[in-house]
Every structure is written in structure tokens, then in C-alpha cells.
Amino acid sequence: MSDESDGKHGVQSLEIGMDIFRVMVNGQRSMALKDIAAAAGMPASKVHRYLVSLIRSGLVEQDPHTSRYDLGSFALNVGLVSIDRLDRIRLGLAAIADLRDTINETTALAVWSEHGPVIVRWERPRRPITVNVITGTALDMLTSASGRVFAAYMARDTVRPLIEREMANPELPEDLRSWPQVEAMLDKVRHDGYAAVSGYYLVPGVEALAAPVFNFKGEITIAMLVVGVQGMFDMAPDGEVVRALRAAAVNLSQRLGYTGSEVSMIL
């Protein structure tokens, strides 16, 4: 049999296992072996063999006291990851729209890509002078607010190559040209719970704030931004814009299932 033909046929045993797993998902409660077998239209002995493999994979677990079967820890994790991937952008778009309405400033959403943070959406405020943010814009790690937030909370092995490439740029501000300086800046971001950039955010005369949004695994998944015109933008740590941004990021993190210590610290 050719590889192409084999690929079209698939793996029948896997499909049978997924049929049994689907019965359990649709059951919406723990189930006895006989009930699973009846719903799947298979002999109980056959279903049991598949359940053993599903248990080993973490998709199913068996209660030792009742012998009933239910979804396992890995199945729950798959569900949470799926929710996170489907909902984070949708919820993020609503969050930056609400934030824009609250503070009447340009707001934006950035996600991580292999080249660093990228703007995926922005919201224009109702004011005569605004800052336009271009969707798809790739942001620097050290001289953008969202880049600093991702650099502060992502794994060092992931962000280090990008940071080192930027540190080699002779136009980088003098206070960011060594690792001790960069580490001090990132420590401040983690301490404050947000990043602030003024004077050299992509273009002169623009200021920006960014706050991290975490998922249920405690990983940064989004950066929420507020962008304004220098001198016309409230950057005060205890000001309305910073408070509203941090509160919006915490609220979105909680909606994505995050329950870590940063929530209580920021609130």
C-alpha cells in the first residue's frame, strides 16, 4: 500500500477510540462501562480495551470507588487550550474597545510571533488628535511598550536572541545597551505590572503603555496597549490611564482562566 493510500485510509483503531471518547464528552457526566458501550454501539469488552488506552493517554480517568469513567486531566487541558486559542483574540478585541471608551485614547492588541510582538487590532478614540497604529506592525522588544512586556514575562531563551539583535543597534538608547541595564528595566516592568515608553516608541512624539494578559497556564498571551501623543497623554503611574489599562488586563486575564499572584498584586 502506498503512503498516499495509507494516509487516506487513516487509522481505524484511533477513529474507534475517538468515537468512544466522543460518547463520554456528549454524556456530560461520569459513565459506567455498560452505558458507554450502549451509547457507542459496541461490546463492553471491546470498549474496555479502548478505555485502558484512553486512561494511559490521560484523556480518560476511572474513579476507583465507583468504577465510573470520566474525562481525564489531559482532556481538560486540551479543552482549556482550545478555549484560550479561540477566545483570547475575541475577548481581547472587546477589551480594547471597552478600554478605548473608558479613557478615550488609542488602544491596541499585540500577540507574540516568531519575530516578536505584532499588532493585530487597534481602536481609534473620539478626539481630534490621535495616534494611528497599523495592524500587522512588528514591534521592537526594547523600545516598544508591548515588546518590554513580552520580554519581561516570556521565557528568556525565547526572547534573548531578539533582544541581543536589538542591543547591537548603535541607535539604541544608551540606557539599554548592556544586559544589566536591560534586566533592570525588565525588573521594573514586572514590579510595576506594566511598561511605559516615551520619546522613542516607533516614531518620535509618541508615548505608549502596555500591560500583560495571562492565560490559564500563567503564560503571557496578549499585550494590551494604550498609545498617545507626547505631552497630551497621562503617563502617571497613579493616573486614570494606567489604572484603567492594568484593570482591563487583569480582567481579561481572569476571563482567560488566570488565577496567579499578579492578579491580587495588580488589583
Rank of each mutant, 00 (worst) to 15 (best):
N77L: 12
V133F: 03
A223V: 04
L142K: 02
T106P: 03
Y201C: 01
V203R: 15
R255G: 01
P117H: 00
F233D: 07
V111L: 14
H48R: 14
T135P: 05
A168E: 15
E114V: 09
A39V: 09
L245C: 06
V133P: 01
Y50D: 03
P43V: 01
F74D: 11
G231H: 02
G27M: 04
A248Q: 09
S178R: 11
S82Y: 13
F150H: 09
H191F: 11
R165S: 14
I16Q: 09
D157H: 14
D3A: 15
V120M: 02
A195K: 05
A37K: 08
G239R: 00
A44Q: 07
I96C: 00
G116V: 00
G58D: 01
S5L: 15
R246Y: 04
K217R: 15
R88S: 04
S261F: 09
M1Y: 09
V131C: 07
V206E: 01
L186F: 01
R148L: 05
M185Q: 12
D6V: 14
Y153C: 04
A244H: 05
R85M: 07
N215A: 02
V118A: 09
L172I: 11
N215E: 06
S144M: 03
V206T: 09
V263T: 05
E166K: 08
K217F: 11
P173R: 03
V189C: 02
M235H: 08
R100H: 11
T137R: 12
I134H: 08
R190D: 01
N132K: 08
L142P: 05
A208Q: 07
H48A: 12
R255C: 07
P204Y: 00
M224T: 13
G17E: 13
V263S: 04
H9S: 15
Q28I: 04
I129F: 10
V25R: 12
I222D: 13
A75E: 03
R190T: 01
Y200G: 00
K46Y: 03
P125Y: 08
L245G: 08
K188W: 05
G147W: 06
V111M: 14
V229Q: 11
N169M: 05
R68T: 13
E207A: 09
A155I: 10
P173N: 04
T137F: 04
Y194I: 00
R85H: 10
I220N: 09
A151I: 02
A211K: 03
W112V: 08
R100Q: 14
L51K: 01
R49T: 10
M24C: 13
S13F: 06
L252H: 06
V250I: 10
R29L: 05
E61T: 14
R56M: 10
R85N: 12
R126T: 13
F74R: 15
L176H: 07
D35P: 10
S253E: 02
L54T: 00
E166M: 07
I129K: 12
M265R: 15
A244V: 04
A195N: 05
S45Y: 07
V227F: 03
Q230D: 10
G27C: 01
E219Q: 10
I96R: 08
E219V: 06
T143V: 12
V78Q: 14
S13R: 14
L202T: 09
T259Q: 14
S13C: 04
D187K: 14
E61V: 12
F233K: 00
V149N: 02
F214K: 09
G205K: 02
G41K: 03
V242I: 04
V263L: 02
Y50R: 02
L245S: 07
